[in-house]
Amino acid sequence: MTPGGATTTVLLPEVPSLGGLYARGAGLSLARRMRPGPSALPDVEYVVRGVQSSSEHLTDYQHLLGESGSDELPAGFVHVLAFPVATALMVRSDFPLPLVGLVHLANRVTQLRPLRLGDVLDVRATATDLRPHRSGTQVDLVTEVSVDGSVAWRGVSTYLARGVFLAGTVTEPSETFVPPTPTGRWKLDGDVGRRYAAVSGDRNPIHLSALSAKALGFPRAIAHGMYTASRALADVGAGRGDAFEWAAEFVKPVLLPGTVTVRIARSSEGFAFAGWDARSGKPHLTGSVTPLR
């Protein structure tokens, strides 16, 4: 389903700030948890036209994630630029799931061609595929970025609302993770959540400090899932090419500070990556980067 198929279009003048959206989302979430169960997704698309990025913002992002300092916008950076538009949709009063407590389960980005600094981006966001999960309900937020009417980047972010159940059967195979031979290691300082928050605008309290994370049920702050997925993408490097599909599944959150042992290696389709806790052998994320030809 494409966002273009929605019947209502909400045209925002600019990309909204995530901080403001969270504040609104927090208020609404309480109300939504009171409901007996989610029903349907709003048939609406959110659009922001004429989005541009600054070189300072891009450079900060590149340095934090380990991307090369080119004028090309890393796929994860485009996510940072575009995703608040999807978040705006998620804080609508008719969005069936609560924003606070949503868990980022997976993210899949299709980069059709490179985007560059100076490109004028149009962003459209829709929500699709509300479906059951063994722990609750999941939904896909689809964001498309186009230049001059032609789609260059498409992201599908899958979120889970725990404890919010839909009717229906859950069919999810739980694969056992066997740690492969590592190729590297990420040593994540305690401030990684704050630093990624600074470049992404995603200041969800669970990422910012042990104190704020505890308030939401985590023993310490946790790393943004997109931070780990974006680092894996950066580690893949130039081998991803100009057009690729980048998919990540977030399994166990990374507590900060922490060490993630990783394998980022060539596979038959392109690159596969995984990050895990070397001591427990439990995975944090798995994923792939598949060049499109």
């Binding site: 031979t181 190729t183 590297g184 893949v236 490097g237 081998g239 394998r263 980022i264 290696a265 060539r266």
Partner: peptide
């Protein structure tokens, strides 16, 4: 040189 980064 070898591509040790990607485990080759």
């Amino acid at each position: 040189a070898v591509d040790f980064v990607h485990g080759d």
